[in-house]
Design a binder for these strands. Structure first.
Lengths: 135, 135
DNA sequence: GTTATTGTCTACTAATCTTATAGAGTATAT
DNA sequence: ATATACTCTATAAGATTAGTAGACAATAAC
């Protein structure tokens, strides 16, 4: 499983926005960056990706900012990590097993364990929504 | 969790050697590489690491090669992956949480989920020995 | 003791990924 | 107009990964 700080930042930003969602408030990039300790210019890119994928909406100009495009309960952590970092499989081979030949094919038992881990991670993170992460 | 092909190769090599362990046979780097489809020169380095950490022993010269230094049941997959790729935590932040400040601290709930995943992975792979992986 | 075989060791490298930073542009509220 | 805030593309330093190269050391067989 690949999990970079990019995914972490994306999740933290969405948590921030989830907490404001009830009130329909907007929050600026700078504010989120400050709240969560994320480099602002990097966060810009992350929020753009989230916007293009329909998770957030933005408003330009003074008093502008970001807000969620959906209810926090409708966004799960797995889809955000997949969006940012790609597949959740612990090894590339587990994801690509059906398409390419890779050395790990030589040990089906090991491959099964990695698959099991992948499934556990997927199940856990797919059932974890941002509603669950609001404090 | 970081899991590179280096770990995969190490595990595959150990599986190969585990299958020969009963008979006390030696196996050359070239043979293992061929069996498992691993670049030979890369495998050399991996086997050296395994040797220095006491998992395998070697014999130079004609009819030389590698063999396990322990029983396959006494080596688990977690320790091999840690040796090759470092900690098993799905995010660096989970491992370093106690030592450094990192953005993910800002969301204890998310951190807990990642800890839970790390623990699942650790438990699974610590209880998986190479005895279990022999065909 | 020469030779072929096999492991040992260090250095190097190409490619990729990650984590940003820079700066110009666009929309909007006042 | 102007200040504010999002948008977009390009760039880049640093680290990591996955190897490759080549000289060296030990050993068995003859």
């Amino acid at each position: 499983m690949k999990l970079s700080v990019k995914s972490e930042y994306a999740c933290l930003a969405l948590i921030d926005l989830s907490e404001l969602h009830e009130k329909g408030q907007l929050c600026t990039i700078g504010k989120i960056a400050e709240n969560k300790g994320i480099p602002k210019k990097y966060l810009e890119q992350i929020l753009l990706i989230l916007k293009r994928s329909g998770y957030v909406k933005s408003q330009k100009g003074p008093d502008g900012g970001y807000r969620l495009a959906k209810d926090p309960g409708e966004i799960n952590v797995a889809e955000i990590i997949r969006l940012m970092d790609g597949a959740l499989a612990p090894v590339e081979s587990v994801s690509t097993y059906f398409f390419e030949h890779t050395p790990i094919e030589k040990s089906p038992k090991l491959l099964d364990v990695f698959r099991q881990i992948r499934n556990y991670i997927s199940d856990t993170l797919e059932h974890l929504t941002f509603r669950d992460l609001i404090e």
